[in-house]
């Protein structure tokens, strides 16, 4: 009888095997090499970007504007990835909000591209005279002047990312946001909201819960087109290694929590789908405001 079972199960039942094998967590290096072997390799370093936009479920007008420019130039001479991405969320009632945000993206993109023209498209290539931060600051300030002239009384947020090589130079006013998303599922907001609620929270007059229920959550303390002197937040950070850069208006971050942003981005097969899924998530959550999103990845 016993022999029969032995025949049937093919040999000595290995009851003790589970206890004798010791397991150890993989080292960071091993994990990294597995991840690397599974993700496709690109010979040439380049930026890949996608974007999404929706008027939302409750507004009639779309007052958001966005621009995404990716330039890849490859050849014998050194290839420096170049990208310019801007999200602007206009406001001010009537049709002025869309005028302001549209002016912001066009003026800023126009100013910046003009300065890079001789570097990208002429021979011999020439680097701009000004530094990256000066180029960004001057472009944002020019947009401020244009909005004051063409759409007085209106205003817009602007969050712009200029990528040259590994450096991301951010120009930021208002409460649109830029995030770094890292492969391990970590998300970091790299811009600071210029909103009254954020300011009161920083000063300790509101705690997290009070801030979440604050009635004037949409009041900005800085906006393009508003005020005599405009102070722009300008800074430069390295592009997140193996990560992504996310720009969005409050139509997205206001209704989709940070951890959901990461999950949706990391679950998507590519950047385009990720953007579409982010927009869908905001609309599913009620879509109270216009939604704009840009996702940028450095491959290679």
């Amino acid at each position: 009888m016993f022999d029969f079972f032995r025949k049937l199960f093919g040999g000595v039942p290995a009851t003790s095997s589970a206890e004798s094998v010791t397991t150890a967590p993989l080292s960071d290096q091993q994990i990294e090499s597995i991840v690397r072997s599974q993700s496709p390799q690109y010979e040439m370093q380049q930026l890949v970007a996608a974007s999404g936009q929706s008027v939302g479920k409750q507004r009639e007008h779309n007052e958001d504007s966005l621009v995404a420019i990716t330039a890849t130039l490859a050849g014998k001479t050194a290839n420096v990835p170049f990208g310019l991405y801007i999200v602007a969320d206009g406001m001010g009632g009537h049709q002025f909000g869309e005028i302001a945000s549209n002016a912001a993206i066009r003026v800023i993109a126009g100013q910046i591209m003009r300065k890079f023209h001789s570097y990208l498209f002429t021979l011999p290539t020439q680097q701009p005279e000004e530094s990256l931060q000066e180029i960004m600051e001057n472009a944002v300030k020019e947009a401020h002047r244009v909005i004051q002239k063409d759409a007085p009384g209106s205003g817009t947020t602007v969050t712009a990312a200029l990528i040259v090589g590994q450096q991301v130079t951010i120009g930021h006013v208002g409460d649109s946001r830029a995030y770094c998303i890292y492969p391990a599922g970590r998300i970091e907001q790299i811009t600071r909201d210029h909103s009254l609620v954020k300011r009161l929270e920083e000063l300790g007059h509101l705690n997290k819960e009070e801030a979440a229920n604050f009635p004037h959550r949409n009041v900005l303390i800085r906006a393009l087109g508003q005020g005599d002197t405009l102070e722009v937040d300008i800074f430069t950070i390295p592009f997140p290694q193996n990560g992504m850069l996310l720009l969005c208006s409050d139509g997205l971050w206001g209704v989709v929590a940070d951890h959901d942003l990461v999950r949706i981005v990391n679950d998507a097969p590519n950047a385009q789908r990720a953007c579409q899924n982010l927009v869908n998530a905001a609309n599913t959550a009620g879509g109270p405001d216009n939604i704009s999103v840009i996702l940028v990845q450095m491959v290679g």
Partner: peptide, 27 residues
Amino acid sequence: AGQSVFFTSVDSTLYCLDARNGWAIWR
């Protein structure tokens, strides 16, 4: 420091360049 290189010049500027490609980040 990090990916930036810093130096001063007799042209009255403190420079911050991208250490990899020499782009001026700020002046």
